[in-house]
Nucleic acid binder design. Structure first.
Length: 372
DNA sequence: AAATCGTGGTG
DNA sequence: TCACCAAGATT
């Protein structure tokens, strides 16, 4: 059993940092310690792989070189820069925090993890990362890597999916981390977690810290970290209406909260809502569904439509907690139809390509272009 | 505390 | 195809 005495800790720090100095990754956001650079990269990296982030980061910095540029940017331009990255509230919170810094703090950054957490979108992990990397504060940055690395090193069998577990790891890591090089220590842990101590293919036999890895020494490293399972996505069936007139589509704007907030999509009608129109949903035939759908669109949106199946399998799109199955229907609406009860408007495909679209919308658009 | 919020990669 | 992961935050 490894004893984490003061001398063990000192030895671990040196081993880890020596390895990081020689083999740490050279990433675009590691060129300097500018808090703006660190911050933007950390937000992008939330639940997102490094290779995905790199081109987004480079483009973002070209578009918004300073926190002031970000604060003053048009939202449409911001969302276009974030298009495809997902978790879009990250982008909105990023700009909200930029405005906090520029307008409420005279351009001054909070320089501690505690202060940083008052900014929108900055939680305990990101605050620790920025504080340690940009401001040299000796605080841990406990992300999925840190959970995994230290769960294995110390055979900590707490469930990392539970909120109570975080403070335990913060205390453990806070005691082990290097007080003089906190930013490098935290980043070294992440590089280790992305290589020798990765989730699926660890290579602890060649790891610089294998001598400190209790789970590896005991042959049980794949049992760590302990993490309770998430339920799988719930299937939701929709009808997607392709309502075209000349080069325009009648598009729906999603509500300002919830999934894909504020994005434009083809009008989506939940199949359940259609079936709920019938007294005997289980007996509804395919033809009756379409007529019930037309009735629903009339009731909800005041739009008289005539729908026609477009053929092809439903478009499938999986989110973290939902799986959408969208059956496309061609529909006709008079171009001068009253849209006052419909949350949307006519948009040309030219306009559509200029605005930020979620992936599911791109899939639908691709399918529409294939068919027509 | 448990749900919510995107997308792409991987075994 | 599927399960699970990837530098989490918010409610």
């Amino acid at each position: 059993m490894i004893e984490w005495s003061e001398s063990t800790i000192r030895s671990f720090r040196k081993t880890l940092l020596d390895w990081y100095d020689a083999h740490g990754r050279h990433l675009p956001w590691r060129r300097d310690h500018d808090p703006y650079h660190v911050w933007v990269s950390e937000i992008m990296l939330q639940q997102t792989q490094v290779n995905t982030v790199i081109p987004y980061y480079e483009h973002f910095m070209a578009e918004f070189p300073t926190v002031t540029d970000l604060a003053n940017a048009p939202e449409a331009k911001l969302m276009k820069a974030w298009e495809g990255l997902g978790y879009y509230s990250r982008a909105r919170n990023l700009q909200k925090a930029a405005k906090q810094i520029v307008n409420e703090r005279g351009g001054q950054w909070p320089q501690t993890a505690e202060g940083l957490q008052e900014l929108a979108g900055i939680g305990p992990y990101t605050a620790g990362a920025i504080a340690s990397i940009a401001f040299n504060e000796p605080v841990p940055a406990v992300d999925g890597n840190a959970f995994r690395v230290f769960a294995r090193l110390l055979e900590i069998d707490l469930d990392i999916a539970k909120p109570q577990t975080r403070p335990v790891f913060e205390r453990v890591i806070g005691r082990i981390m290097s007080p003089d090089r906190p930013g490098d220590f935290n980043q070294a842990v992440m590089d280790l977690g992305a290589s020798y101590m990765s989730a699926k293919n660890p290579d602890s036999a060649h790891s610089p810290v294998k001598a400190f890895n209790q789970a590896y020494l005991d042959g049980v490293e794949m049992q760590y970290p302990v993490k309770s399972k998430k339920p799988k996505p719930v299937k939701v069936a929709y009808y997607g209406l392709v309502i075209r007139h000349d080069d325009q589509f009648l598009m729906q704007k999603r509500p300002s909260d919830g999934l894909l907030a504020n994005f434009w999509t083809f009008p989506l009608i939940a199949e359940d809502d259609v079936l709920a129109m019938s007294e005997t949903p289980e007996l509804v035939t395919e033809e009756e569904r379409l007529s019930l759908l037309e009735k629903l669109v009339q009731q909800e949106f005041g739009l008289t439509v005539r729908v026609i199946p477009m053929g092809g399998k439903p478009v499938k799109h999986t989110f973290t907690h939902r799986q959408w199955l969208i059956t496309l229907l061609s529909a006709e609406v008079k171009p001068d139809a009253d849209l006052s009860f419909f949350p949307g408007k006519w948009l040309s495909s030219d306009e559509l390509t200029r605005m930020a679209l979620p992936k599911v919308q791109e899939k639908l658009l691709t399918r529409v272009h294939q068919i027509q």
